[in-house]
Amino acid sequence: MKPAAFDYVAPTSLDAALTALADGGYDAKPIAGGQSLVPLMAFRLAVFGQLVDLGRIEELQGVARDGDELVIGAATRQAAIAKDALVAEHAPVLAQATGWIGHQQIRNRGTIGGSICHADPAAEYPATAVALDATIDVASTRGRRSIPAAELFEAAYTTTLEPDEVAVAVRIPVRRPGEGTAIFEVARRPGDFALAGCVVRVATSGGAVIDARVLAFGVGGAPIRLAAAEAALAAGAGVGSQELTAALQADADGLTPPEDAQATSAYRHSIVVHVANTAIAEAIADSQ
């Protein structure tokens, strides 16, 4: 389990990194924390001619507030996000999501941009980013663009990023008054990838839900909006109500969850309703 050989550069500026990626073409790969990439390389499931390490680029690090948005450098470590004061205040569910990621040793190295760009269907950050209406700023030598998280994830391990593009920052609208968020997931062991998980954001007015984002993960190729549940919540269906349960069931029935050594497809299908219900209840409680 030793990786195949590759060349390695660790530029200290984003421009240099983008140039290296552009020059390297399909053979070059950006590496951030490497917590998902390195195992794939160890199994030789992934082989690259060149790794471009983003870990030494200062402008990709850190959390800042920019108007109504929180701007998180793509190479910010997950552990830093978990204990960041701005995140705790303005995007608390992102900190909560971080707690579900692997273990401390992983979070100390893994980054938010790396996790989002890796697009593991069972990972927490992609669904959280979609639930929070985040935008991913990406860059290449061809220029910069911003991709709404909802348009980033195409399929398992597949994003709409071009090979020469890297994520620069994740922009998250700051939590608004009356908003409530929560994340809940079920895994075989603490720190394992979710068998099914759900991130919920509700907007309330006068204590009543007026809008909702319900994002399931681990049950399909990409984070999946449970649209019927969102509509039911926006229409005033409460936790435990027949309407919400029926809507969740309808959403669940539209899924074709994956099957693997950890759980059957039927199992993932079965627990989605419970997982979503739990997260919805917590999000509503959080909004009060």
Binding site: A10, Q35, P39, A42, Q105, N108, R109
Partner: peptide, 29 residues
């Protein structure tokens, strides 16, 4: 395990525990 699960290879890098099987030596330069 050489895939970052078992923790046997944990070392402190700049004071923080990390999996030394999931880092390349050049990254610890």
């Amino acid at each position: 395990c050489e895939q970052g699960v078992c923790g046997a290879c944990t070392v402190l890098v700049d004071g923080e525990p990390m999996r030394s099987c999931l880092m390349f030596a050049v990254q610890a330069d």
